Amino acid sequence: MLDINGGELLILVLVAIVVIGPERMPEYARQLREWVLRGRDLLRDSKASVKAEIGDDVDWSQLDPRQYDPRRIVRDALSEPSSPAPRAAAAPRASSPATPGKAPFDADAT
């Protein structure tokens, strides 16, 4: 989450002691403890209310936002076996193919 290792934590504690001072450090440590406990209680209450509202029969895999990743959608679409498309009735074509560079013109379509 914060990606702080032991050495960095030690440096932060030492800086806090120098900046805050050893006299006020116990007071700030108590405040930090209260914030952590309040945050923990808030998280626990939130989890309980969500569980009470939704219940236990929720399929969380259906609510996974990673399933809407465009890369995954394309990868899944490309990995599906292709089924042959049904052939439509062929429309009668003109006897001469269209000349390159010009769009074909159909008098009946306009």
Rank of each mutant, 00 (worst) to 15 (best):
R93A: 15
S96A: 15
G39H: 12
V74Q: 11
A88Q: 07
A107N: 06
I11G: 02
G101E: 00
A94Q: 15
S82A: 13
R44N: 03
P70R: 05
D59L: 02
E53G: 07
W35R: 11
I4G: 05
L63T: 09
A16L: 12
I73E: 08
P81L: 00
I73V: 08
I54Y: 06
I11Y: 06
R44M: 05
L63A: 14
D76P: 01
G6Y: 04
L32S: 14
V18M: 01
V15D: 15
E27L: 14
P81W: 00
G101V: 04
A90P: 08
A29H: 00
G39R: 02
R40M: 09
L10Q: 09
G7S: 10
Y28K: 06
A29G: 09
P22N: 12
P70T: 07
I73C: 02
A29P: 04
E27N: 01
Y28A: 05
G21P: 03
V15W: 07
M25C: 01
V15A: 10
S61F: 02
S95T: 14
P22R: 11
R33Y: 12
R75N: 08
D56Y: 02
F105E: 11
A77H: 04
F105T: 05
P84G: 00
G21C: 00
A107K: 12
R24K: 14
M25V: 03
L9N: 03
L9C: 04
L9Q: 07
I54C: 02
I11R: 05
R30N: 14
A94R: 11
K47Q: 11
P86T: 02
I17V: 03
A109W: 02
P81S: 05
P86L: 04
V36Q: 13
L63C: 06
G55Q: 01
S61E: 15
P81N: 02
D57G: 09
S83Q: 10
R75K: 12
A52Q: 11
I11P: 00
V15C: 07
G21E: 00
L2T: 04
D3R: 13
P84E: 02
S61N: 08
Y68P: 06
A77F: 04
A48K: 06
V36D: 15
L42M: 11
A89T: 09
E80W: 02
A91S: 10
L42A: 15
S46F: 11
L10F: 08
K51G: 10
D106E: 13
R87Q: 06
A48G: 07
A48R: 09
P97W: 03
E80T: 10
R38Q: 15
D41K: 15
N5W: 04
E80R: 13
G21K: 00
T110D: 14
L2A: 04
A52Y: 05
M25G: 03
A89M: 06
V18Q: 05
P22E: 14
M25P: 01
K102M: 10
D56E: 11
